[in-house]
Design a protein around this nucleic acid. Structure first.
Length: 108
DNA sequence: TTAATGACCTCCG
DNA sequence: TCGGAGGCCATTA
């Protein structure tokens, strides 16, 4: 099976350093997909059965809002994991998001 | 092959 | 400032 968009997304998410977060659009752009931000989220949907485990909790939307937290079980797990990384989450939104933001296109 | 889906992003009212 | 609708592209059935 050739490396598909999904594999690219998985690899990028796994490269996210601890205590850092990124956005779907940033990942898509770094892959050269630009407008395929939805594909990143769609890939995360399949990431539940991917190994090694994908730190999807480090991937949020452009506003730093935990839009996909409801896909976790329990839904509060995503916030809990981010807080464990040293991040601050209030009302399902990452505080100082731009400070903890990790741009794969820049870091890589 | 066509049609439908989606953990988003951006624009317009 | 807040809310709603459309568009983007790859994967799956």
């Amino acid at each position: 099976m050739e490396p598909s968009f999904y594999d690219q997304v998985y690899e990028i998410v796994r490269l996210i350093p601890k205590g850092r977060v990124t956005s779907y659009g940033a990942i898509a752009k770094s892959l050269g997909a630009g407008g395929s931000s939805r594909l990143v989220g769609y890939a995360m949907n399949n990431a539940h059965g991917i190994v090694p485990k994908i730190p999807a909790h480090r991937v949020v939307n452009r506003n730093g809002l935990l839009t996909g937290k409801f896909h976790f079980s329990p839904p509060g797990l995503m916030q809990q994991l981010l807080e464990n990384e040293g991040l601050v989450i209030i009302e399902d939104k990452i505080q100082h998001f731009k400070v903890h933001f990790w741009d794969p296109a820049t870091e890589l």
